[in-house]
Design a protein around this nucleic acid. Structure first.
Lengths: 223, 223
DNA sequence: ATCCAATTTGTACAAGTGTACAAGACATGA
DNA sequence: TCATGTCTTGTACACTTGTACAAATTGGAT
């Protein structure tokens, strides 16, 4: 069998979608970027919507698997504050790392999710919900266990804010560079992850009810 | 002079853009929604890009004015923590309120900004940066004054997270409802504002350096 | 009533869209 | 060598896109 152009096509499509959204990218754009003919796309994927579905299929499972794996490690930490931090990291890191084959992560894929979610593309909408809601629920439960007495409302909204912050960090990193007059590099993903984890740590931490003071080895004053 | 269809067109266009993005909405969609002919659009706006520019012109100034007005009030609060809370509220509220004519706010407009920013539309990109960067800088400065010793990096990243959270709360409120199994209403904007302000308050608050403990009337333990 | 400028309509155009499909190119097993 | 199944190409189709512009319509001032 001749080596198929399917995989390069998937990669190129994901890149273009993540950059300009679903509607703005034509099949011919994708074909041109991959150096093949338009017909190849119909041959391999049948339709544009199905191409999108295949991109999701490629990334979703490995990424959620990685998240749950890290979550499992985090759950073994007994100190609630350290556990909270580890859980947040388990959620954020796989979404940010550059997809070095097989880890299923990929900032590019996450960025694509962000863009498609904003576009409100119906195809993407349903796929995303199916693929990520269960993982999100698992994380919210784990977060709740770290935070005695935290309300469902507080937990869910903060998880929403976390995802929004995560998305926007990938969508518009230039804004960070611009607003800091170049002092901060918005494209520095390691820094972004750390900042995001710290910020959401503080935001979740504030949900804990002080009265049920669980043993806490960290500073409780300010940070 | 006959009453022009320009304003209804602007409104309809903003609604459609905020729902599906810039590319997915055709001029004919907009015309149909407003019950007029396509030609009207070329007549009034010349081009699609210019229509977008006029929508921004309509909302940007009033909205930033309202933000700065509220910021001015907030700055008169002497207690740093209460001031911090008020500043965050001054940033968030005008972006969330439904645009009841003249206040310039508008969740719909903010949602549109969110969607366009994700789409990476070059037209929108430039307009947004010009219109909002200055206001953002002013807010970041004000926040920094409440938080002794906070690093620029921390401030800018958190402002990025705040904006991302704000955007995503408007883009995908159904997720909140879904993940809470209906217990929390993602479309309840007052609740969203409160949750967002509280969450970002905690996240910014954690930036303050404990040593330079400014006088603080609030609980410093947890929340 | 008549004119006029502002607005709206209808229609046309070139360019680009997703999809379909016949024809060719290719490597592999017989 | 040749037949076969897999892939690639080129091209065609019907449709939508943004834009342009002449013709019709409108409502107020004269």
């Amino acid at each position: 069998m001749r080596t198929s152009a399917k995989e390069p096509l998937l990669r190129n499509a994901a890149t273009l979608f993540s950059r300009s959204g679903y509607n703005a990218v034509s099949l011919r754009d994708i074909a041109k970027a991959a150096g093949v003919n338009v017909g190849s796309l119909t041959y391999h994927f049948g339709s544009k919507a199905n191409l999108l579905r295949e991109i999701y299929a490629r990334h979703t499972l490995p990424m959620n698997a990685r998240r749950l794996e890290l979550l499992g490690e985090a759950k073994r930490i007994s100190n609630p504050d350290e556990r909270l931090m580890a859980i947040l990291r388990a959620y954020v890191v796989p979404a940010f790392v550059s997809s070095s084959d097989g880890d299923g992560g990929g900032a590019e894929f996450t960025r694509m999710r962000a863009v498609l979610s904003a576009e409100g593309n119906p195809d993407a909408q349903a796929i995303i919900a199916d693929a990520f809601d269960e993982t999100s629920r698992t994380f919210i439960d784990a977060l709740g266990e770290c935070l005695g007495g935290a309300s469902v409302e507080g937990l869910v909204w903060r998880s929403q804010f976390l995802l929004g912050a995560l998305y926007y960090a990938l969508i518009n990193p230039e804004r960070v560079t611009r607003l800091s007059n170049g002092a901060v590099d918005g494209d520095d993903r390691e820094a972004a992850v750390n900042q995001l984890v710290e910020a959401s740590y503080a935001s979740f931490r504030s949900l804990a009810v002080p009265s049920t003071a669980h043993q806490n080895s960290k500073e409780t004053i300010d940070r």
